[in-house]
Structures are given as structure tokens and as C-alpha cells.
Measured scan of single mutants.
Amino acid sequence: QLWTVEEQKKLEQLLIKYPPEEVESRRWQKIADELGNRTAKQVASRVQKYFIKLTKAGIPVPGR
């Protein structure tokens, strides 16, 4: 299922709330739990694509 604008905005906020961890899967699980309707795997996939998009555009990656 496609990500809504609201989900993307919340994801961006949660990336700041939950900074990078030694075991990133824990971070994705915390974010997924707060989103409520996404799995950690879906979050990880979305974040990877989002970070690539930001990097290509020369925009700083949130939480890094």
C-alpha cells in the first residue's frame, strides 16, 4: 500500500525522535510501532528510498 502524505510527515518526525542506533532494526521497529500501520521492514524500505532521494537532491538526512 502506498504511503500517505501524513505517514511520510510522521515518519520524518520519528526519524528525528529516534536517532540512529547500533542495531538499526530496533529503530525501525520503534518507528513502526508509533506509526501503527506499518511493519519495521516497510519502514526500513521507505527510509532507504527516502534517504537516497534526499542525498541525490543534496538535502541533509534527518537524524544524522
Rank of each mutant, 00 (worst) to 15 (best):
Pro62Ala: 11
Lys41Gly: 12
Tyr18Cys: 02
Arg26Ala: 14
Gly58His: 12
Ile52Met: 14
Tyr50Glu: 15
Leu35Lys: 01
Trp28Ile: 03
Val23Gln: 14
Phe51Trp: 11
Glu24Ile: 05
Thr39Gly: 04
Ile52Phe: 15
Ile16Trp: 10
Ile52Glu: 15
Ala32Lys: 01
Gln29Val: 10
Ile52Thr: 15
Gly36Arg: 07
Val61Met: 09
Arg64Cys: 08
Glu24Ala: 08
Ser45Tyr: 05
Val43Ser: 00
Val47Leu: 04
Val61Asp: 14
Gly58Ser: 12
Tyr18Lys: 00
Lys9Asn: 06
Trp28Leu: 04
Glu34Phe: 04
Gln8Val: 10
Trp28Thr: 00
Lys17Met: 10
Gln48Val: 05
Thr39Val: 02
Ala44Met: 11
Ala40Ile: 04
Leu15Cys: 04
Glu21Phe: 02
Tyr18Phe: 09
Val43Gly: 01
Pro20Gly: 08
Gln13Pro: 01
Lys9Gly: 08
Val61Leu: 11
Val23Leu: 09
Arg26Thr: 13
Ile16Asp: 13
Asp33Arg: 08
Tyr50Leu: 09
Lys49His: 08
Ala44Ser: 10
Leu11Ser: 02
Asn37Trp: 08
Pro20Trp: 10
Gln13Arg: 14
Arg27Asn: 02
Ala40Pro: 13
Val61Phe: 08
Gln29Pro: 00
Gln48Thr: 12
Lys10Asp: 04
Leu15Met: 12
Ala40Tyr: 05
Ile31Phe: 03
Leu11Glu: 00
Arg38Cys: 08
Pro62His: 12
Leu14Ser: 03
Pro60Lys: 06
Trp28Ala: 02
Gln8Tyr: 03
Arg64Thr: 11
Leu14Met: 08
Lys41Ala: 13
Lys56Glu: 08
Ala44Leu: 09
Tyr18Ile: 05
Ile59Leu: 13
Arg27Leu: 01
Lys53Tyr: 06
Val23Ser: 11
Ala32Phe: 01
Gln8Glu: 11
Gln13Phe: 09
Glu21Cys: 06
Gly58Met: 08
Arg38Gln: 06
Gln48Asp: 10
Val43His: 00
Tyr50Phe: 09
Glu12Val: 05
Tyr50Ile: 11
Glu24Gln: 09
Pro60Asn: 12
Glu34Leu: 05
Leu2Ser: 07
Leu14Asn: 02
Leu35Trp: 01
Glu12Gln: 07
Trp28Ser: 01
Gln13Met: 14
Lys41Met: 10
Ala32Cys: 03
Ile31Trp: 00
Arg64Trp: 11
Glu21Pro: 02
Phe51Leu: 14
Asp33Val: 07
Glu24His: 04
Val23Glu: 13
Trp28Phe: 09
Gln13Ser: 11
Pro60Ile: 05
Glu21Trp: 02
Lys10Phe: 06
Pro60Arg: 07
Gly58Leu: 10
Thr55Val: 08
Leu35Ser: 00
Lys41Ile: 10
Gln29Met: 08
Lys9Trp: 03
Ser45Pro: 07
Arg46Ala: 15
Gly36Glu: 10
Arg27Glu: 02
Gln8Ser: 08
Lys10Tyr: 05
Phe51His: 13
Leu35His: 01
Asn37Gly: 14
Asp33Ile: 11
Asp33Leu: 07
Arg27Pro: 02
Arg27Gly: 02
Ala32Trp: 01
Leu14His: 00
Lys56Leu: 05
Val23Gly: 07
Ile59Arg: 12
Lys17Tyr: 04
Trp28Asn: 01
Phe51Asn: 14
Gly63Gln: 04
Ala57Asn: 13
Lys17Trp: 03
Leu35Val: 02
Lys53Asn: 11
Ala57Thr: 10
Pro20Gln: 10
Lys9Leu: 07
Ile59Asp: 15
Gln48Pro: 03
Val23Pro: 14
Asn37Lys: 09
Arg38Gly: 03
Leu54Glu: 15
Gln13Val: 07
Ile16Lys: 13
Ile59Val: 14
Ala44Arg: 10
Thr55Asn: 11
Leu35Phe: 09
Lys56Trp: 03
Val47Asn: 01
Gln8Arg: 04
Gly58Ile: 06
Pro60Ala: 13
Thr55Ser: 14
Gln48Trp: 06
Leu54Arg: 14
Lys56His: 10
Trp3Gly: 03
Glu24Cys: 07
Ser25Ile: 11
Ala32Tyr: 01
Asn37Ile: 09
Glu24Tyr: 04
Arg64Ser: 12
Val61Cys: 15
Val23Cys: 15
Tyr50Val: 13
Ile16His: 08
Ile59Gln: 15
Val43Leu: 02
Tyr18Gly: 01
Lys10Leu: 12
Glu12Pro: 02
Lys53Cys: 06
Gln48Cys: 06
Thr55Cys: 07
Arg27Asp: 02
Pro62Asn: 14
Ile59Ser: 13
Phe51Cys: 15
Glu21Thr: 08
Arg27Met: 03
Gln42Glu: 14
Ile31Gln: 00
Ala57Arg: 12
Arg38Trp: 06
Gln8Phe: 03
Lys17Ala: 08
Ala44Asn: 04
Leu14Trp: 00
Thr55His: 10
Ser25Val: 12
Glu12Phe: 04
Pro19Glu: 09
Thr55Ala: 12
Glu21His: 04
Arg26Gln: 14
Lys56Pro: 12
Lys30Thr: 03
Gln42Pro: 00
Ala32Pro: 00
Lys49Asp: 13
Lys41Trp: 10
Leu11Tyr: 01
Lys30Val: 04
Trp28Val: 02
Lys17Glu: 07
Val61Pro: 14
Ser25Arg: 09
Leu14Asp: 00
Arg64Phe: 13
Thr39Lys: 02
Lys56Gln: 12
Ala40Asp: 05
Arg26Glu: 13
Gln13Gly: 14
Lys9Gln: 13
Pro20Ile: 13
Tyr50Cys: 09
Gly58Asp: 14
Gln42Ser: 08
Glu12Leu: 04
Leu11Asp: 00
Lys56Ala: 11
Asp33Thr: 09
Lys41Pro: 11
Glu22Ser: 09
Pro19Asn: 04
Gly36Val: 12
Gln8Trp: 03
Ser45Phe: 05
Pro62Thr: 09
Glu22Gly: 08
Leu15Thr: 02
Lys30His: 03
Ala40Met: 09
Gly36Asn: 08
Pro20Phe: 06
Gly36Asp: 14
Gln13Tyr: 08
Leu54Ser: 15
Leu11Asn: 00
Gln48Asn: 08
Ile52Tyr: 15
Val47Ser: 07
Pro62Leu: 09
Glu24Lys: 05
Asn37Ala: 08
Thr39His: 02
Ser25Lys: 07
Lys17Thr: 07
Pro19Cys: 05
Glu12Ser: 07
Arg27Tyr: 03
Glu6Asp: 09
Lys56Val: 03
Ile59Ala: 14
Thr55Ile: 06
Lys41Cys: 11
Gln13Glu: 15
Asp33Gly: 07
Glu34Trp: 05
Val47Thr: 06
Glu24Trp: 03
Val61Glu: 13
Ile52Ala: 15
Ser25Thr: 11
Val43Gln: 00
Asn37Arg: 08
Tyr50Pro: 11
Pro20Tyr: 09
Gly36Pro: 10
Lys56Tyr: 02
Gln29Leu: 06
Thr39Glu: 03
Val23Phe: 06
Ala57Lys: 13
Ala57Asp: 12
Asp33Lys: 07
Ile52Asn: 14
Gln29Phe: 04
Glu21Ser: 06
Thr55Met: 07
Tyr50Arg: 06
Ala44Tyr: 06
Leu15Arg: 00
Gln8Pro: 01
Arg26Met: 11
Glu22Ala: 10
Val43Ile: 09
Asp33Trp: 04
Tyr18His: 08
Lys9Met: 05
Lys53Trp: 05
Ile16Ala: 15
Ala57Val: 07
Ile16Tyr: 12
Glu22His: 10
Ile59Lys: 15
Asn37Asp: 08
Glu21Lys: 02
Pro20Asn: 12
Tyr50Ser: 14
Gly36Lys: 07
Lys30Glu: 02
Gly58Lys: 09
Leu11Pro: 00
Lys9Phe: 06
Leu11Cys: 01
Pro20Asp: 14
Arg27Gln: 03
Leu35Pro: 01
Asp33Phe: 10
Glu22Pro: 14
Leu35Met: 11
Lys30Gly: 02
Lys41Val: 10
Phe51Tyr: 09
Leu54Gln: 15
Lys41Tyr: 06
Val47Lys: 00
Ala40Lys: 04
Gln29Ile: 06
Ile16Val: 15
Gly36His: 11
Glu22Met: 14
Leu54Ile: 09
Asp33Cys: 08
Leu15Ser: 02
Arg64Pro: 15
Lys30Gln: 04
Gln13Trp: 12
Ile59Trp: 08
Ala32Asn: 00
Arg64Ala: 11
Gln48Ile: 06
Ala40Phe: 04
Ile16Pro: 01
